[in-house]
Design a protein around this nucleic acid. Sequence first.
DNA 1: CACTAAATCCAAAACGTTTTGGATTTTATT
DNA 2: AATAAAATCCAAAACGTTTTGGATTTAGTG
Lengths: 340, 340
Amino acid sequence: MTTIKDIARVAGVSITTVSRALNGYSDVSEKTRRRIQEVAKELKYSPNAVARSLVMNRSKTIGLLVSEISREGAKDNFTFEVLCGINDRVAELDYDLILFNTNSAQQKVKSYTQLCRERRVEGVILQGIKTDDPYLEEVIESDIPCVVVDVPITGNKVGYVSTDNVDGAKKAVQYLIDLGHQQIAMMNGHKKAFVSQKRKEGYLATLEENEIPIKEDWILNGEFREEQAEKVALYFLRNHSNVTAIFCASDLMALGVLKAAKTLNIPVPSQLSVIGYDDIVLAEYATPSLTTVAQDKYQIGYEAAGLLIDLLAEKETNNARILKSNLKIRQSTDFNNKKA
Amino acid sequence: MTTIKDIARVAGVSITTVSRALNGYSDVSEKTRRRIQEVAKELKYSPNAVARSLVMNRSKTIGLLVSEISREGAKDNFTFEVLCGINDRVAELDYDLILFNTNSAQQKVKSYTQLCRERRVEGVILQGIKTDDPYLEEVIESDIPCVVVDVPITGNKVGYVSTDNVDGAKKAVQYLIDLGHQQIAMMNGHKKAFVSQKRKEGYLATLEENEIPIKEDWILNGEFREEQAEKVALYFLRNHSNVTAIFCASDLMALGVLKAAKTLNIPVPSQLSVIGYDDIVLAEYATPSLTTVAQDKYQIGYEAAGLLIDLLAEKETNNARILKSNLKIRQSTDFNNKKA
DNA sequence: CACTAAATCCAAAACGTTTTGGATTTTATT
DNA sequence: AATAAAATCCAAAACGTTTTGGATTTAGTG
């Protein structure tokens, strides 16, 4: 592996000059610069990023911490699409991305911050982390710049990106109401997720605005899991035949509700309307296809990476980036056909 | 950021001793080792992996090159699941994973090998690369250890992992034949993919074994894309009403075929059986759900990472790891109901 | 031509580790 | 007590870059 020393030797100059020539400094004549470049190509030189990182104290690397990067996440293409967005933006800005494994045995012994510090990443993106994850606090309090997706934290060198979950939920519920629904339940995710809180907020606000009485026991907990949602929905639907629509805080849970309805022979959407959240790939292919609040997952990742690198560059920027969401109307919703 | 120098200073020993104490060498007394460890904890020391890489010439990092890591890949959760497998195995073996962006403008100017060399990754995993990708050859011929998924290349420090595609195709086609089908078309992917060749091989072999005449124009090219497959299938089905089954080289293309059949009002599976390949998440949720040749995508990634690290360690191993695939029978296949 | 300014170059230090080869101290053996 | 062996420690070099501060050469000016 050739180094700048080798180049210096054969080009007959000092290593300083090689370094400065290759890095485009002005204090080297065009003639020698060209010679050096030729020699470099000749010797198949590629710079050693490790050595460079060491001396410059900048690794040009950002870390990605995904809380639950496992096959479970495959149904839910959320993680993957965010990753794609991050990857693309990071590439554009000439950084590299290092994936931290957080589900291995290692995790118990090495904390996030230790991982980050050891690898000298310049910043880190956190995804899928629960609000009560002890490591979340740790990272925030460390001096490592970070941006987290879907948890609203800001601070010096810490920001977040999310979508407007209250607004998304409002759009969904209002749409149901506009279709004539009055008996609307909500299948929420676990309370530890910030998005659950916000979507519930939107649900409640919309009911109030429309003067529909709120029933606390109509807010179910599907834990963001399909099977759990199915089980809970099964029980709920059996005992509340008057419900005409269910707003779900995730598509996966909506699919669970669909299954429950099928089991009970409740036709969707004619007797029951179902709305999901996220617009995962499955939403489009399910039968009936899911009406859902779409989030631009790729954009979330793209913005997260951009924000982080802005933070690193100390660029003046808004530490909170909130994206719009929009309702995608498909087959799982319809006018309320039940007699009141 | 504290260094071993700091530790040495406050512990009153040399940096050599600190290094050797922290790394568990035997030539340091238990007493001083403990003191050093205490001081290290006290000062919140974390080792600088960059500096270590430089001197040891081992980065403990492997690179991942995914040819088409973009939202397109989201439907197809293949990429993601492989990634999960890689990530897990890499974590177990205490390596880190760095993602290389190959779809940016950068790519044109920096080759794969340059990227790898700059970052001093110890090895690299290539996924989704086409057999005619110029960079493929480049990486193989470089001295960088690598394993590629689904392209059969071996050599010194290069290996691959794949599933037995001939066998998988055979299982699928034989199953159709056992159901009474004789008029079986194949929707293949583009020829640049190794798996296309093998799946076709299995298709042809099975027909021959069962003495079913082969019709070359019954082998269609869906380019591994849903829309393309739909278009091609539409045309084919219109002109060949005698076909009773279609074996597809990917689930995505099978979904395209399903759509075409729907458009033409051909009921699946009663009038047309369809088999896919891969077992992506959508396969289970499509209507009708897809019978398919399932590949353990997670395992592919897991094996790839394991193989690469074995290669790095110069461990004696088989450079080709072929996994089994198995037929998952769902709703898109049925007995041949057409009159001959 | 003499002098200054600009252009071009370079030696050495620094980044934070690991490792080598030896020095010093302690322990064991006679 | 003298010696050998073992245990414990350390100074210095090395990894491949960038950067600092200055040295040398060239060009420009009167």
